[in-house]
């Protein structure tokens, strides 16, 4: 019990305390702690990456072994992984190498395209889902429309009224960004700041321990 539960929690508490106090101490002893912590944490992260790769491989290999639905695609995934490693071995990873090109023209291109699908969803959602079902939703959509016009050149083009001294769409969008938007974002940020602070405190005190696993 002590080795499995208490000691880790003691380590959490001690490390939390040391690093908090370290912040206020300029002495070189404190600096030494800081520099070595950074060094260690980076190395832990390097070896921690093993976990990710291992579980990735495990998921796909299990899927192929058990022939679950779409297991063929797991083969494709593993094969592409293997190809990348082979490419890196035979051609290095410099500019315009097979490795680099394979990444740029398959993975990067597909990723970018998949995300660009959202442009279509957003257009169909704007037609079918974004409803002004309350006065507040009207405000939201109105601000959004002003923003969308104000951030593109056409907003200036259609603001014919700016010639008479009335603020153009662009100016209004700039104001929304810098004034009400800023206020809203800061109110949220102050709340979120407190929330995450409480979380760190709960971790240091050992109240929050979900991350340790059951």
């Amino acid at each position: 019990m002590f080795w499995k539960k208490q000691l880790p929690l003691i380590i959490v508490f001690m490390m939390g305390l040391i690093m908090t106090v370290q912040y206020f101490i300029p002495h070189h002893v404190s600096k030494w702690v800081y520099v070595n912590y950074v060094d260690w944490a980076i190395v832990i992260a390097i070896f921690g990456a093993f976990l990710g790769y291992f579980s990735f491989l495990r998921v796909h290999i299990t899927r192929i072994r058990k022939k679950t639905s779409n297991w063929v695609f797991s083969i494709i995934t593993l094969a592409s992984l293997l190809i990348m490693i082979v490419f890196a071995l035979i051609d290095g990873k410099g500019s315009d190498s097979l490795f680099q090109n394979m990444f740029l023209y398959t993975s990067a291109a597909i990723n970018a395209t998949v995300f660009s699908l959202l442009a279509f969803y957003i257009s169909s959602a704007s037609y079918r889902a974004f409803r002004a079902h309350s006065a507040q939703a009207v405000a939201l959509l109105l601000a959004a429309v002003i923003m969308m016009l104000g951030r593109v050149p056409i907003g200036d083009k259609i603001s014919f009224w700016s010639a008479w001294g009335i603020p153009s769409i662009n100016t209004v969008s700039q104001w929304i960004l810098n004034s009400p938007n800023m206020a809203a974002k800061r109110a949220i940020a102050l709340g979120v700041g407190l929330g995450s602070l409480l979380m760190t405190l709960k971790i240091i005190l050992g109240i929050e321990r979900t991350y340790l696993g059951n």
Binding site: S124, A125, A129
Partner: peptide
């Protein structure tokens, strides 16, 4: 949210991700 809205379901959402909130709020 869009698919849910199009099927006519009642939808209740909740998230702390600020960039996704507008979509939930409208749909």
């Amino acid at each position: 949210a869009e698919t849910g809205a199009s099927t006519g379901a009642i939808q209740v959402a909740g998230t702390d991700d600020m960039t996704q909130l507008p979509f939930f709020l409208t749909a």
